[in-house]
Design a protein around this nucleic acid. Structure first.
Lengths: 236, 236
DNA sequence: CGGCATTTGTTCGTATGTATC
DNA sequence: AGATACATACGAACAAATGCC
């Protein structure tokens, strides 16, 4: 609402999504947009830059900005989305069930894994993501209690990020993510429909508030055949 | 050289790398930098935004910009780097060997896989990446001949991207990347030291010139135990 | 608590450079 | 050559968050 370039960004993004502008098509020029939104060029450029970073448009010096073929941003983790948002984007019907919800204190060993401070209290949650009746993702979350106060099972069933951002009004800043392959644990085999696979793809998320404090560590353990990570990058 | 905000970006990045500013430390304010580089605030802000996007610094409203603990940007593919650059960054001694170098024409079937236009001529290259005497990555490249003219085995042994950008002076724009797990093929087993693994992690790269034309498709097939993907994302 | 200085965030207007057509 | 379009740069003003006195 407040911020003009966000409005413009969302408007243009909506226009692309709705098919008003199709892949390959040229968008109105920056000066056109200045008139359309009655704003300055700097503001228009900021909106277009965001679209460019996301891989929705490509700006060419002297020619214009063109809509890219955005066939698949589906299930993209690029840009730090929570699970609910990701599944909405990709139009898949995931069902989430909670298999553990407890408080505990981070000890030496757990601190090494989670990078959360030793001695702090966290909510530990197991969530299982089910698609078409198959359990394919096991999420193991650790949330700092002091940052995500009064978290409940009910909230965890919905979207924890929505709770943090909308209800608690806390700003999430950034995340580091590591993807690797690991041998399946007993827990994986108990909780997922592993077929004959004996390994999982693990996505480790270290998530920080905008003030720079880490408040979450999450391991998403995926059955390998259903794992897919899509990414877009510009050359720097 | 030419572009001021790039200079500033690189200078500050160097200062962080050299340890002049340490993790957690506050950088000079934007106005300080204006004086230091005798430039305008907009230019300084552009440089700082780039560092922020990369996860090197975190700017806080009303407080300042702080150096993040960048313990691991090692072997990050985030930001579209070629293999040589990646291995330089991570200080590992990869050895590259060429196991195939040929020209061929993209047919219907291959077009579906590579997304390159049917009927176009490409260089097809197999490259094997060896680390500590173990063959762990098989790269299968397809480069559009019209975009990467006169590519030779010698160049491929070095860095193809360096050739494209410095020698041909062609601008690379962006890439889409998909990571998934696939069963190991006979080729994987022939060319890699697969131990007892019967699957590989596959990174598919669809790379475009800045004019929006796709000029490369590459499959990087990794032995699963040595695969790691590191990423940084800001909340939008 | 208010008031003030500092710092980052947003917006505007303008000018100039450079690529494309 | 001239018009159009994006890229870079400068300067100015105000908003909003923070910290200090």
């Amino acid at each position: 609402m407040n911020i003009k370039y966000i409005d413009i960004y969302e408007t243009i993004k909506g226009d692309i999504a709705s098919g008003k502008y199709k892949p390959g098509e040229k968008l109105p020029s920056e000066n056109d947009y200045c008139k359309i939104f009655s704003t300055s060029r700097g503001t228009v450029r900021k909106a277009l830059e965001m679209l460019s970073e996301e891989g929705l448009v490509n700006s060419l010096h002297g020619k214009g900005a063109f809509v890219l073929d955005s066939n698949l941003i589906t299930f993209s983790f690029g840009g730090l989305v929570s699970f609910k948002e990701a599944s909405e984007n990709s139009n898949r019907d995931f069902i989430t069930s909670i298999h553990m919800f407890e408080e505990l204190t981070i000890d030496e060993e757990l601190s090494k894994v989670t990078k959360l401070p030793k001695g702090s209290t966290v909510y530990k949650i197991y969530r299982i993501r089910e698609l078409n009746g198959e359990k394919i993702i096991l999420d193991i979350n650790y949330f700092l209690k002091e940052a995500v106060y009064n978290l409940t099972k009910e909230i965890a069933k919905q979207s924890i990020y929505e709770y943090i951002e909308k209800t608690l009004n806390t700003k999430i800043g950034f995340a580091k993510r590591v993807i690797k392959v690991e041998a399946a644990t007993l827990k994986d085999k108990e909780n997922l429909n592993m077929k004959s696979y004996n390994f999982v793809v693990v996505v480790k998320n270290y998530v920080y508030l905008s003030n720079g404090i880490q408040f979450e560590y999450t391991e998403s353990r995926h059955r390998p055949d259903r794992f897919e990570f899509v990414d877009f990058a510009r050359r720097r």
